[in-house]
Design a protein around this nucleic acid. Structure first.
Lengths: 207, 207, 207, 207
DNA sequence: TATGAATGAGTGTTCATTCAT
DNA sequence: AATGAATGAACACTCATTCAT
């Protein structure tokens, strides 16, 4: 049984610690030593399992992307009328970002590094991602047929918009608080924003 | 006089180099040495004029925010009908981001560091920023009166949304290219996105 | 029996890999991990069979010395006239170095470490080595009696000289190539050097 | 005057310490930390002045080669009869090695690394080195004319041989002591070897 | 006999910052 | 106002070796 000598366990502990560290400090600001301390493993193990800091970041980043897409795949949308399906998807996106703000930080860091951590590593992810667009496409098609939605709305542009509205609000919550002199994260503010996001998307698609 | 000119010059050269370095690498990834090399000044001068790396980042960040707000103030919107005024504002925001992608990088880095570089440094900026919200508020009010726009749209939420739609697209252009297998930055793609942004905002406000 | 064969096999695989690694990188530059990889055995086995890196190096070094001495013992020189016997010995030394350049690297590394890897480990080797001097001594004696050679030539100094002429040329083949702008290792160059070595030794001993 | 803030001084202290460290431990075995300690300078300065360990080794190595060649150039040989000139050169080589055993260690280490530290760094050195061959060539020519030396002796091969006889003896002094059970470094042994070297070279060239 | 997992001390290198002039 | 020299703490990464099975 041996909990102690457990390769998978160590690997996973590293992963969890790295996830936290990278999302708190970005790739450049993250410290391998802190990851080792946090994971309570020997630093050497990081290099044993992941090669180097860069590859560890890649792993974490890809997992983060995979996680959101997998969660999304679990949504049951096909049985809902198109409007409700779309609202549910917008809600899901907003909720996911709210519960996983680290995801946003990781993606920002990945883009600061021009996306190089995604290259050569992401076949599975790209497949998962195309599922993401498909979901939106299917909803739009159903809405067109039912007469609820306008025709010829680009699924990709809509995907991006749904993400954008929540992502921006959350990634800018710190500077936003200062500049707007408003706590972006209190319960009411979050509710207001969630509703606004839904409203703006629904207005966009409505016939 | 000559000396002062020089002094201003050195200060400004540092600023320009720092702006570039911080936007390329973020706060943590930026290197003081590189800034000095790029500015072609003695590294010691950075500490003379700006105190330390952190304060230099603050300066750069605040300037970046000021610049967008000042440019925005120069827009002449009052004389346009509300719809056109709003479209012009959306266009401006998108264009500004497109021409100043470093601004987005700086803001991301500032938020990674929880906005601490803005605190105690930003009275002027906060004033400028409230002007930003005012612009939107005024347009919304005029639109309500003219019957073009719905009533009770939150200016702050609209501000955020206008920014969000462009900001997200551009900050995620690298991972986006890989995940959507689509060049986010070619001319046509940028045009399509610009139009989509306008459409979504206009649909949101229309009566 | 099968197990013993396996055990010998593992030990030997380690030895071969270590021989290669140490001669390529020296003692300090050699990596235990690389030896394990090269030998395709578990790293732990190195410690099982040889104790540590230092002792492994000792083993390899002593084997290397033993090998050259054993090969030398196999020469049949007694039946040749003294001049021919000496020429054959010089040829042998030069050929052996040429075919076993790793030997030279190992010896250099051993001397860099002040010979400590030979101490307490080398009784058999010292015996073998005295055989080396005996060979030269016997030839010299026979040459004196036959009138071919001068009297009172020191066997030890001659041994050293025979080794020196080939050893130096080969160990310095890389810097030599650059400094003399001449490929030390092409066929013709090696032939020229081989003949020169013989000539210089024969001139030294001739009556 | 400022002894303390003295760039040349620091650079030189690093050089001296590196020279010692590299010759004691070879390139791989040398420690940058020890060099810094020995030089009593901040480790950072090593990287400031020399870039990295590898370049520092290159510098030290090239200087070592330059030094022996420069010392050799200072010999006044043209005014001596050819035999005496050649003997003086052999003596010089032997004495130089004896007084600078580190030189031998450095050259061994350089060759272990396949001479790469000499490449792209050694124009001056290659020139100096051709002076080395010229010296021998001139002596040989003069000896031919005077009838003291044989004709058609290769200067390059003779250069190599002169170096070889001393170099090998000294570089192998540690393993030699054990294998031959003889202190290679006591005064008498060194004298004997010095004379033997001269004898072997003179016999080689004599008419 | 054999192995995969783990370790602590260390290795070359880089960082933001300060000193001395 | 400006500079080249210097620093110590930290950085990512690697080492020979031992543990647990």
């Amino acid at each position: 049984m041996g909990q102690k000598r457990n390769s998978k366990n160590t690997r996973h502990k590293i992963y969890l610690a790295a996830y936290k560290e990278f999302s708190l400090f970005g790739f450049a600001g993250a410290r391998v030593d802190r990851i080792a301390d946090l994971a309570k493993i020997n630093k050497r193990m990081i290099y044993h399992y992941y090669g180097n800091k860069e590859k560890l970041f890649s792993s974490v980043l890809i997992s983060a992307y995979n996680n959101i897409r997998k969660a999304e795949q679990n949504l049951v949308l096909d049985e809902l009328p198109p409007k409700q399906a779309l609202e549910k998807l917008v809600d899901f996106t907003w909720d996911y970002y709210l519960k996983n703000p680290e995801f946003i930080s990781l993606v920002n860091s990945a883009n600061l590094h021009k996306g190089r951590h995604l290259i050569n590593n992401s076949d599975e992810l790209i497949n998962l991602h195309s599922g993401h667009v498909n979901i939106v496409e299917k909803i739009l098609k159903r809405g067109e047929l039912s007469g609820d939605f306008r025709v010829n709305i680009s699924p990709v542009q809509l995907c991006i918009s749904i993400a954008a509205l929540g992502y921006y609000y959350l990634t800018n919550r710190f500077t936003g608080r200062i500049l707007f002199n408003k706590n972006f994260m209190d319960k009411k503010a979050l509710n207001v924003r969630g509703e606004f996001n839904k409203e703006i998307i629904m207005k966009m698609v409505q016939a």
